[in-house]
């Protein structure tokens, strides 16, 4: 079973958060930090930032939208990914085959194309269906964000469904068998043993996938959703200033990624067995 990594690889010992100050302040770190500070000061002194106060509120709104998109679509996507992965591992063919097809289609086509197909395809079809026009959903469906959320959710579900398939299949058969031998029902087995074990194995992969998801969010700017990238595109259009907004944008994605990685590391530290 190639999925069954030795425990040492599957659950590497993570550096503990409690490094002391003297350990942290090494010469190379001090030099790098000074260079970093120098760059920021240089950027602040020599580049144009006078546009910033005017667009501050918009940027915050865009940041909020990006974070919301990321969190909502990752969580919804993961909830779909679990049954998609499970169906491929144990499901009867009528579930396994559609799940595999779903993953192949999502992973085999560009996300941009999926977003446009949903927004310009479904979005332009719905107004001609009276049942939908008159339903309570219409006030939502005439906006752009439901299509963006749907596309990003399906995308995450497609990639994660495949990852979860591997994770479910990689849980040692003996542990599943032990649960059955002790009289566990299917649902209890999934909830107590199979899913937590699979999730534990999949966490390191999940960090990377979620970072990729963050960096996929600018694509929904193309269907008029005002997330972070869309705001900066507008700054550029309004002011004809190109580099400064892009630099700030890059920095903001970098910080978001760092926060994301940090949060996942906390989770990983909690869930990874440690010797005591």
């Amino acid at each position: 079973m190639s999925d069954a990594l030795p425990e040492e690889i599957a659950a590497p010992h993570l550096p503990s958060a409690s490094t002391t100050r003297s350990e942290f302040l090494k010469p190379h770190r001090i030099v790098l930090a000074l260079i970093g500070v120098g760059l920021i000061v240089a950027a602040a002194m020599t580049l144009r930032w006078d546009w910033l106060p005017k667009y501050g509120d918009l940027i915050l709104a865009g940041l909020w939208m990006t974070v919301l998109l990321l969190v909502v679509t990752s969580i919804l996507g993961f909830l779909i990914a679990v049954p998609v992965g499970l169906a491929q591992v144990t499901g009867p063919r009528i579930f396994a085959w559609p799940a595999a097809t779903f993953c192949t289609i999502i992973r085999g086509t560009p996300l941009l194309l999926q977003i446009w197909l949903l927004y310009y395809g479904l979005g332009s079809l719905f107004p001609f269906i009276p049942e939908i026009r008159q339903s309570f959903l219409w006030p939502y469906l005439r906006q752009a964000w439901p299509y963006g959320v749907l596309a990003l959710t399906l995308s995450y579900a497609g990639y994660e469904g495949e990852v979860m398939r591997g994770a479910f299949a990689g849980v040692p058969k003996g542990e599943i068998e032990a649960a059955r031998a002790f009289g566990m029902g299917r649902f209890t087995l999934l909830r107590r043993i199979w899913l937590p074990r699979a999730f534990q194995r999949v966490l390191p992969t999940l960090v990377g996938e979620t970072v990729l998801q963050l960096k996929s969010t600018p694509l929904v700017a193309t269907i008029t959703i005002s997330e972070l990238y869309a705001v900066f595109a507008r700054v550029r259009q309004d002011t004809y200033i190109v580099y400064e907004p892009l630099l700030l944008l890059a920095l903001m994605y970098l910080v978001l990624t760092a926060i994301l990685v940090y949060l996942f590391r906390l989770l990983e530290n909690r869930l990874t067995p440690k010797s005591r």
């Binding site: 003996g174 649960a179 029902g185 043993i193 074990r197 067995p273």
Partner: peptide
């Protein structure tokens, strides 16, 4: 399932659940 709770099995390769203490 009910009968299995009266029979307890010990396996060759232990099969303890690795995510639990």
């Amino acid at each position: 399932r009910r009968i299995r709770t009266r029979l307890a099995m010990v396996f060759q390769s232990f099969n303890l659940w690795q995510h639990l203490t």
